[in-house]
């Protein structure tokens, strides 16, 4: 395996790649040209094509981000306009519609997950005006003028966010369903640490400075609003600490 890696590394260096492609390949640990072939398009959609693993593409990515119109005018319709991943969206929504359902059912942004719909699992976590919140307990109607960032908006110019890379590297997920919420939560957590926000396990709550270095215990407490039923918690903490402290976890892999 190691030999292959070296060989591929070499191949990779010989390739004439665009900057975009290079950064993507770097992050993904993908070196072979055959993968590159799929990367002709550097858009998110192009990226995802690569690993849809041949489920008919039109079924997987049909109608992406094209807002669908409601089938009938609602009795309690509300017009709302907000920014989602820097793009302004105007929607007419049922007053009962949550931000979560607006993204998933109307904007085909299904990265934000519905795990409980009652604020008890964190799978629907995304950023509104830079803060992590639960989209299942946010009415779409109340989002007028807000800036929403979902998991689909974290990668910039096809470059994965460092947290996304760290989750892949540290295997911070298994089934992947809680993952967008975990990552959005982790990204916000980095800002909270910078701000010097406290948690219940913070040692000295009266004297707290900015740019906190969070212990593992601190990370665990602050990430406890994101349930992972697969039990990837130690790997999630490792991923966050890699981004937060630059600390790489030694997993003691057996030599294979």
């Amino acid at each position: 395996m190691k030999e292959n890696k070296d060989k591929n590394q070499q191949e990779y260096q010989e390739l004439q790649l665009s900057a975009d492609e290079k950064s993507i390949l770097d992050q993904l640990g993908i070196f072979g040209k055959s993968r590159r072939r799929f990367l002709g398009q550097s858009s998110a959609a192009g990226l995802s094509l690569m690993a849809t693993q041949f489920i008919p593409i039109d079924k997987v990515f049909g109608q992406e981000t094209v807002p669908s119109t409601p089938p009938v005018p609602f009795k309690n319709a509300v017009d709302v306009s907000f920014s989602i991943n820097t793009k302004t969206q105007q929607l007419t929504v049922d007053s009962r519609m949550t931000l979560l359902d607006a993204l998933r059912e109307r904007l085909q942004l299904t990265g934000t997950k519905k795990g409980c719909d009652h604020g008890q699992c964190g799978a629907c976590t995304l950023l509104v005006d830079g803060k992590r919140v639960l989209s299942c307990l946010t009415l779409a109607a109340s989002c007028e003028g807000k800036e929403v960032t979902s998991i689909e908006g974290l990668a910039e110019n096809s470059e994965l966010h460092p947290m996304q890379k760290a989750f892949i590297k540290n295997d911070g997920f298994q089934c992947g369903y809680c993952t967008p919420g975990q990552i959005c939560s982790s990204v916000a957590l980095m800002d909270e640490a910078k701000n010097g926000d406290a948690s219940y396990v913070t040692e000295d709550i009266m004297n707290i400075s900015e740019n906190l270095t969070l212990s593992d215990e601190e990370v665990r407490e602050r990430m406890s609003g994101n349930i992972c039923r697969c039990g990837a918690y130690p790997n999630i903490v490792a991923a966050i600490q890699e981004v937060h402290q630059g600390r790489e976890t030694d997993y003691n892999w057996q030599e294979s």
Partner: peptide, 23 residues
Amino acid sequence: APENRIEGFLKVTGKAKYAAEFS
């Protein structure tokens, strides 16, 4: 070898499609 999950980047970008998410 401790390879990263080959579908991992779909999961961290919200692009992996679960049953209710097919359009």
